Amino acid sequence: MTETTKQPIRVALVDDYDVVLTGLAHMFDRYRDRIVICEIDANAELSDQVDIVLYDSFAQPESDRQELAALVRNPRASRVVVYTWNFQPELVESARTQGTHGYLSKTLPARELVAALEAVHAGERVVSEPPSKRVGSAPGLDWPGRHEGFTERESEILALITQGKSNAEVAALTYLSVNTIKSYIREIYRRIGAASRTQAVLWGVAHGFSPDHHRIDHWLGGP
């Protein structure tokens, strides 16, 4: 009896930023026999039929019910998985009730991320263990400002500021206090030599903190 060849799982990546998405896509380079990236969407609608949409939450509110709900409803997406380091119980529960199929930590090494996606594809609902307080991103990930020395959290806050969010809005979206946001902003200003919010926004626009708006199809020869 001939054994059926197992097909790789078709995955679409969704986020607002190309640099985040391409860094994530490269994490799967060694696993192309198991995971194939069909498309990479930065504020573009899903166009391919895929097994899993991996929704990277950098500078996007994980509680954005409209974005996740639209992906869950999309008939082209069989399953939707959130990829994040923010494990506030309210966010995990919100994603679950919206019908997502997984909530995965960015601290997972590539092999464990691939295994988790395979479990989701097999019908399991997978939720990672919350990361420790000393959060670090998985090797290979990238984000705006990383090469200028920003942590992912600092970059997320600057990205939200660049998008025009107020301190109160940033605090609500990141589940931090306004005073904590102010502390982050002071550190961001110091790093970039900004004396005002306007200067910080202009710096952010000039250094890739504005959301991108396009799709990358057929990543590295994918379908």
Score class of each variant (00 low, 15 high):
Ala195Val: 10
Ala119Met: 09
Phe58Met: 10
Leu21Trp: 02
Arg30Pro: 06
Trp143Thr: 08
Thr22Trp: 08
Arg32Leu: 02
Glu124Asn: 13
Leu54Thr: 07
Val80Asp: 00
Ala115Tyr: 03
Gly140Leu: 00
Val72Ser: 03
Ile192Gly: 06
Asn179Tyr: 10
Ser57Val: 12
Tyr17Ser: 02
Ala194Arg: 10
Ile192Lys: 09
Val81Met: 08
Leu13Ile: 10
Glu62Pro: 07
Glu93Trp: 03
Gly222Val: 00
Ser47Phe: 08
Asp48Phe: 06
Arg190Ser: 05
Lys133Met: 10
Ala206Gly: 11
Thr22Lys: 13
Pro61Asn: 13
Arg197Val: 13
Ser78Gly: 02
Lys106Asn: 03
Lys6Tyr: 00
Ala171Phe: 06
Val82Arg: 01
Gly164Lys: 05
Lys182Gln: 15
Thr97Trp: 05
Val19Gly: 03
Arg10Ile: 03
Ala69Gly: 13
Val127Cys: 09
Gln49His: 14
Ala172Gly: 09
Arg190Ala: 15
Thr198Ala: 10
Glu124Ala: 15
Asp212Ser: 12
Gly193Ala: 13
Arg65Thr: 14
Lys165Gln: 13
Asn74Trp: 03
Val127Phe: 11
Ile40Cys: 08
Pro89Ile: 00
Lys165His: 14
His101Ala: 13
Gln7Trp: 02
Val127Gln: 09
Val72Trp: 02
Leu108Met: 14
Ala95Lys: 05
Leu202Val: 08
Arg134Asp: 14
Val135Met: 12
Pro75Lys: 09
Glu148Ser: 07
Gly164His: 07
Asp56Val: 00
Glu3Phe: 12
Asp41Phe: 00
Ser78Pro: 05
Arg32Ile: 07
His213Lys: 14
Ser47Cys: 11
Ala200Val: 09
Glu62Leu: 09
Val120Gln: 07
Ile216Cys: 00
Ala122Arg: 13
Val20His: 08
Ala168Phe: 01
Val170Met: 03
Leu24Thr: 13
Arg73Cys: 07
Gly222Tyr: 01
Val81Trp: 06
Ser94Cys: 15
Phe87Cys: 08
Leu91Gln: 12
Thr151Cys: 12
His147Arg: 14
Leu202Asn: 12
Gln98Lys: 04
Ala168Arg: 15
Ala44Val: 05
Ala69Ser: 15
Val50Gln: 01
Asp56Cys: 11
Arg32Trp: 02
Arg146Val: 07
